[in-house]
Simulated assay, not measured.
Amino acid sequence: MPVTLEADLVVALSSRTLFDLEHSHAVFERDGVEAYSLYQIEREAEPLNPGVAFPLVRKLLRLNEGRERPLVEVILLSRNSADTGLRIFNSVEYHGLAITRAAFTNGAPPWRYVEPFGADLFLSADARDVAAALQAGYAAAALVPSAVAESPSDEIRIAFDGDAVLFSDEAERVFRERGLDAFQAAERSAAHEPLSGGPFKNFLDALQRIQAAFPIDDSPIRTGLVTARGAPAHERVIRTLREWGIRIDEALFLGGMDKTPFLRAFGADMFFDDQRGHVERAASAVATGHVPHGVANEAADEGNSERLEGAGQNP
């Protein structure tokens, strides 16, 4: 009988997010695929240094220690060939990561294997792969160069923006098309109408499945909603989560304030946001993924986007 994955959470990620492959990638960009292949083969006994996603992955895999059935499965989806991927697997073994499954696609889009592996989340450094995965309906983020320092705590802390990440971008469209006053009025009148789910709703569901296996006061995972919304736009968010039956451990309604110091105080191991401005600022403090989804990523005028963001409660 074929083996099936029984984990509550399956995370798929590229080798460039798990390990620091920026110098190797620069060789590829400058000298081409043959030079890159030779570079990796010559160094396949040299372990790679950790990348942006490494601390989070190590924490997630620790959840499996001492368990017959794993809570988490981590899969590598890489544009490397099997030949150049040997260095990746050697590095996995060197760092003691319990990762046994991978797809090496030799330059072809690896996100196609998100569905066969049943992944709840796809992390990549390639924005094209991320955009394609999101369009196909999967939770995906492009990890950006970030200030990453592994927390001394084993607790996993993951933070999310709200609109266009956990929720649809329906409210944000009102804000961008009609302004802050119209947005607040619309959210007040729709306070009892749940928002539609965004691309990361199912990933949050998967996290909650793991949380449910532990006492509420002793969970190894802590989630946070960090949104530029403020009152009166908070009520619809709270009621939406209640309708979904999903628990958020901490909810920060910042009313347009910079999210960065709050993410640092929360101690996020990873933060997901759809707006480039928030992502770029947050990356100075925590590992951050851009979710290129929704109206904020359709806008042609980035300068106008930043102007609206500075106006106040940009959701």
Score class of each variant (00 low, 15 high):
167 F>M: 13
29 E>Y: 00
279 V>R: 02
278 H>L: 05
133 A>I: 11
58 R>C: 03
184 Q>I: 03
150 E>D: 11
23 H>I: 01
43 R>E: 07
123 L>R: 01
221 I>V: 11
156 I>T: 03
94 Y>M: 05
118 G>H: 13
249 D>R: 15
108 A>W: 13
164 A>I: 00
263 L>V: 07
256 G>M: 08
99 I>L: 09
268 A>K: 05
290 H>Y: 07
63 L>N: 02
1 M>H: 10
278 H>S: 13
208 Q>D: 15
4 T>Y: 08
146 S>R: 02
121 L>F: 12
198 G>I: 04
282 A>V: 07
145 P>Q: 04
80 N>T: 01
116 P>K: 02
303 G>C: 11
262 F>A: 06
87 R>P: 10
146 S>Q: 03
87 R>K: 12
68 E>F: 06
185 A>L: 07
166 L>H: 07
12 A>V: 07
42 E>Y: 09
242 R>T: 12
231 A>H: 13
10 V>I: 15
90 N>H: 14
176 R>L: 13
147 A>M: 09
297 N>A: 09
6 E>D: 15
288 T>R: 01
112 R>H: 13
27 V>N: 04
177 E>M: 09
150 E>S: 14
256 G>A: 12
240 T>S: 10
91 S>C: 08
62 R>Q: 12
50 P>E: 01
90 N>I: 02
73 E>K: 11
209 R>T: 10
22 E>M: 06
145 P>R: 05
265 A>Q: 14
46 E>M: 10
36 Y>S: 00
123 L>G: 00
87 R>D: 09
241 L>E: 04
170 E>N: 10
36 Y>N: 00
250 E>R: 15
119 A>D: 10
72 V>H: 05
1 M>E: 13
116 P>C: 06
25 H>C: 01
58 R>A: 08
22 E>L: 05
90 N>Q: 12
131 A>W: 02
13 L>Y: 09
215 P>R: 11
26 A>E: 11
262 F>V: 13
69 R>L: 09
98 A>R: 06
302 E>V: 14
141 A>P: 02
40 Q>N: 15
251 A>T: 05
220 P>V: 10
162 G>D: 08
